[in-house]
């Protein structure tokens, strides 16, 4: 075991302990804190957007900017893949 492996193992141990400790101090599973934004969306999504699917209403209406960024990332990735595999010579 050389010095680099030792460093990697110690980093991984610290990261694992920190992550598991922070997960243990989360709120308990199934009883989240009261969330006014989510409760508002659940209560008003049918009247405001006319969609029964709450997730689709959030994706396309309440948080449309997120979806715009997601579509941009997908477009850029597809353009990058096509660019990388482009035939250089016919």
């Amino acid at each position: 075991m050389n010095k680099r492996d030792l460093l990697a193992y110690s980093f991984l141990t610290v990261f694992a302990v920190f992550t598991i400790f922070s997960m243990l101090s989360m709120h308990s599973f199934g009883v989240p804190d009261e969330n006014a934004m989510d409760q508002y969306i659940i209560d008003n999504t049918v009247e405001e957007t006319g969609a029964s699917n709450g997730v689709t209403a959030v994706v396309f209406d309440y948080r449309g900017f997120d979806t715009l960024g997601e579509a941009t990332v997908l477009f850029t990735a597809v353009a990058g893949v096509i660019l990388v595999f482009r035939r250089l010579k016919k």
Partner: peptide, 21 residues
Amino acid sequence: FPVPQALTLTSIVIGVAVLAL
């Protein structure tokens, strides 16, 4: 809560795109 599920949907699609790249 619908907002974490919608963000997970975003995360999955971005994951597929980045995986292909």
